[in-house]
């Protein structure tokens, strides 16, 4: 059975259908990518998976349990972590503190315990710090733990976001353009890191990526979205030959050559911010 399974997922904003009747399956232990031109609904799909948006139609199950009605914090408890397209670290907290927030689900200290500093609470806190340092090492940020997140170089911020996501000990990791803005060597390092995540830790990885080299290199399965619809799905080799995919990309002036180096990825317009969801005094979605 698939780890993640989306059936007929549809998400609309007013008149615009961002994701339309999407079926999607993801096997445990695989690495897959979602690609598509700007505005194809990729990040919207991620937001549906992580509870930031509630789908208008369809259903999503994770490990057999439905998650499309849950809030983001509940989804995180189920073992899904994510990173964000436009890096969203806790800017004025240190790198370590960022990772510690990521461990939220695996800590149990109550506020009373924190005030009196019970032995159990101290043990937990120390273990959490050790784990945070370990994760820093893992993503190649040894020694940066006390830097404020906002002060880290761009590439390191991306890495820290991955470390923060890993701190939740996820079974499924969603990465939203994790190599955007990186140079080729950094991109290569990140790609290796993702492979390691799967090979060593058994984490299932799902990427949104514009950098075609990364996608073709790492993915076992690629799903192509256009206007919110799935237009193709298959192995990298299949996708490269798919006529619909080529048209979807070439149909647009700014599209990257699917096999060649990717376009310089700017932030795509669609999901600059997270959804205002249904609660805050949010604006219209237009």
């Amino acid at each position: 059975m698939s780890l993640l399974s989306a059936k007929q997922v549809t998400k609309r904003f007013g008149g615009l259908t961002a994701v339309s009747e999407l079926d999607f399956e993801l096997e445990e232990g695989s690495i897959a990518s979602v690609i598509g031109p700007n505005g194809a609904g990729k990040t919207t799909f991620f937001n549906c998976l992580t509870g930031f948006f509630h789908v208008d139609e369809g259903s999503i199950t994770f490990d057999g349990r439905p998650i499309h009605t849950l809030r983001p914090d509940e989804v995180a408890h189920y073992g899904i972590s994510r990173t964000y397209q436009n890096i969203r670290l806790f800017a004025s907290m240190t790198a370590i503190e960022n990772i510690l927030v990521g461990q939220h689900n695996h800590m149990h200290a109550t506020w009373m315990g924190a005030i009196v500093r019970t032995p159990a609470q101290r043990r937990e806190e120390r273990a959490a710090h050790v784990e945070a340092l370990r994760l820093l090492d893992f993503v190649g940020l040894s020694g940066r733990g006390d830097s404020l997140a906002v002060k880290l170089p761009y590439g390191d911020q991306r890495r820290l976001e991955v470390a923060r996501a890993l701190a939740n000990k996820p079974r499924l990791l969603l990465l939203d353009e994790p190599t955007a803005g990186m140079n080729p060597s950094e991109t290569h390092q990140m790609t290796e890191l993702f492979r390691q995540l799967r090979d060593d830790l058994g984490i299932t990885v799902l990427l949104i990526e514009h950098e075609m080299r990364v996608v073709m290199d790492i993915s076992e399965k690629i799903t192509v979205l256009d206007y919110g619809r799935k237009i193709a799905e298959g192995t990298p080799a299949e996708i490269q030959k798919n006529q619909l995919v080529i048209e979807a990309y070439l149909g647009r002036a700014t599209a990257p050559d699917e096999a060649g180096p990717a376009d310089p990825v700017g932030p795509t317009e669609e999901d600059e911010a997270l959804p205002p969801s249904d609660r805050g005094p949010s604006g219209s979605m237009t």
Partner: peptide
Amino acid sequence: RPSGILGERVTR
């Protein structure tokens, strides 16, 4: 109804 009677004109 956080966006007001007529809705917010500005983006959030």
